[in-house]
Design a protein around this nucleic acid. Structure first.
Length: 573
DNA sequence: GGCGGTCTCAATGTCCAATA
DNA sequence: TATTGGACATTGAGACCGCC
């Protein structure tokens, strides 16, 4: 299993363990918005449960605004708007009633027949007679495929729409892993329009949500170059996992940061793990593996407590990583600096560039490929100046997953021994910055111990040269080398330079993968500048859709089994 | 806990033009 | 062709408050 698959699975476990609700896009079409659809969809879940347990109540149930917010992430004001919409549509009844010992409570009841009739009209489904009671099979046939909306993601992304978009992206990521349309760095094809239609989003709200997610560092996007650009996206699973497990603090100006400030003393994990309103997964779940969907039981790992202090979450790791400023402004998750680096550090055996065959391979690829000739262009990424991860891989891994600490430490030890066995620093294949006398620079490393990371020092120099005027690059490099030998070298820009270089390599790799992939197969035309889908790629897309449909069907089955559970709270009156 | 009112301002929808 | 960016008018969410 690749690191991305592992990360995807871990994220999936974390998210499902924190609860999700079903979002039915068809309801959004019917209601004219996501928010009423979310309320309606979850009200159906509650109604179903209460009908089973208390059929004498005729479908009436009560919930507080807080209950709704915990389940859907809708604020009381948003709930109010959504309720107004649902009332106007005739799907929703409300009664304020005084209950002994509990004061006024707002009771709700769904108008299932009206809802079914509208769904029938919308779907142009022929039916005999009228629907007068709850009929699972029929209702579900009208609702179509649900989308798992991970409530926790709404908190991370600062709102319902962001949470929904991120939930959908995670679903797409899962499909991409399953269909192997994802590259080694986690990029997979994705259509903005398709997502908009699938989720029944407005163009503006989708745009805002995507921008927020990108700024927060949860997703990165890239476009293929050509007459028909294809959008690629990658989800920063490391960042999501870090937040979910309480191992990271959101940036002050990120949506998540604003939520954190607003939440103040409310523990996110505590809220999200609360029993009751959120569909908490207890039974088997479907785990996507290389061999296809399969069922596996897991126990959600306990949430690690973070300590909110003054609206922010204090954590040693977060404090360390938050030293790095955001790109262009103070926005962005501070711990998300280097998605690839973090992901790699978290889930893969650590490697050193000097001994990394893959690094060499990429190096050779770079040498034979003129980056300017590539079909890929990158969008501005929020990660171009990542911090240097000063923690060891083992420490970082231990924070996310203490169980694995021992193994990673062993990996570290093995690799460090390997590196130390090299007689002299390897200078072949080093990426030198423009504007430096390479021959003179190479001489700086004469008699330098083998453990010195040449590329890191050169990258630091490159970063400094980019940030400011360096009158004597060779002299500057010499100083860096001396500091490194004294153990006083603290890189500040090297990681950013390395990540930018890795990003270029990723796109080149993605291009190669896209060319080789049966789904995203591209063929060059005579001009050499155009990309178009071949017949085989169209067939591939059809296969992809079929597989997605199959997966969605199985997910739906799992959800249905969940939805058939008991009502989550007892009537109080 | 829920309702109703007020004020401010961010978010949204709808255009259209620009871009790759 | 798909996507982005911007302008502008409108909508509605947030943050209060007091009251039942």
């Amino acid at each position: 299993m690749s690191s991305i698959e592992q990360a995807q699975q871990l994220a999936s476990e974390q998210l499902t363990g924190r609860g999700f609700i079903q979002y039915w896009p068809v309801l959004a079409d019917l209601c004219g918005g996501i928010k009423p659809a979310l309320m309606l969809g979850h009200a159906m879940y509650w109604t179903r449960g209460w009908l089973k347990k208390h059929p004498e109540r005729g479908g009436w149930f009560w919930k507080t605004a807080k209950d709704w917010q915990e389940a859907t992430a809708l604020t009381p004001r948003e709930q109010e708007s959504a309720r107004n919409t649902l009332r106007e549509l005739g799907f929703w009844q409300e009664e304020l009633a005084t209950t002994p010992g509990a004061g006024n409570r707002l009771f709700y009841r769904l108008n299932i027949p009206e809802l079914c009739n509208k769904l029938i009209t919308a779907a142009k489904t022929k039916t005999e007679g009228t629907i007068s009671r709850w009929d699972d099979a029929f209702l579900l046939s009208l609702l179509g495929q649900p989308i798992a909306y991970y409530r926790a993601l709404a908190d991370l992304s600062g709102g319902v729409i962001g949470g929904l978009v991120l939930s959908h992206l995670l679903s797409e990521l899962r499909s991409a892993v399953l269909t192997k349309t994802i590259d080694a760095d986690g990029f997979f094809p994705y259509s903005v329009e398709e997502q908009r239609v699938t989720l029944a989003l407005g163009t503006k709200s989708q745009r805002n949500a995507r921008e927020a997610l990108k700024k927060a560092g949860f997703v990165q996007e890239a476009l293929t170059k050509g007459q028909r650009p294809t959008l690629l996206v990658t989800v920063n699973l490391a960042a999501i996992l870090a937040l979910l497990t309480g191992k990271g603090a959101p940036g002050a100006n990120t949506p998540a940061g604003r939520v954190a400030r607003k939440a103040q003393t409310q523990e996110r994990a505590q809220i999200l793990s609360q029993e009751g309103n959120v569909t908490t997964l207890r039974g088997p779940i479907m785990v996507i593996d290389h061999d296809g969907p399969q069922t596996q039981t897991f126990v959600a790992p306990p949430s690690t407590q973070s300590v909110p202090v003054g609206g922010a979450f204090r954590h040693s790791r977060a404090a360390l990583l938050s030293k790095r400023p955001g790109v262009g402004n103070s926005e962005g998750c501070p711990f998300v600096d280097s998605r690839a680096a973090l992901l790699s550090a978290l889930y893969t055996k650590p490697t050193f560039q000097k001994n990394s065959s893959s690094a060499r391979e990429r190096l050779s690829k770079r040498r034979v490929t003129n980056p300017d000739d590539g079909r890929w262009r990158s969008l501005p990424l929020p990660f171009d100046e990542p911090i240097n991860p000063t923690s060891t891989t083992a420490e970082l891994k231990a924070e996310i997953d203490p169980v694995c600490t021992k193994d990673v430490k062993q990996h570290d030890a093995v690799d460090e021994r390997t590196v130390s066995s090299i007689a002299t620093p390897v200078l072949d294949g080093v990426f030198w910055p423009d504007g430096i006398d390479v021959e003179s620079a190479r001489r700086v490393f004469t008699n330098v111990p083998a453990h010195i990371n040449v590329q890191e020092l050169v990258d630091e120099l490159a970063g400094q040269m980019r940030a400011k005027s360096v009158p004597s690059p060779v002299g500057y490099l010499s100083t860096l080398v001396r500091k490194a030998m004294d153990g006083a070298f603290v890189p500040t820009r090297a990681a950013g330079v390395a990540e930018a270089r890795a990003a270029k390599a990723r796109y080149e790799t993605a291009l190669a993968d896209a060319k080789a992939s049966p789904v995203a197969e591209v063929v060059s035309t005579g001009s050499g500048d155009e990309i178009e889908h071949s017949n085989s790629s169209k067939e591939g897309i059809e296969r992809l859709r079929a597989v997605r449909q199959k997966v969605a069907s199985q997910v739906s089955s799992s959800l249905l089994s969940l939805a058939s559970g008991e009502p989550d709270s007892e009537p109080q009156s």
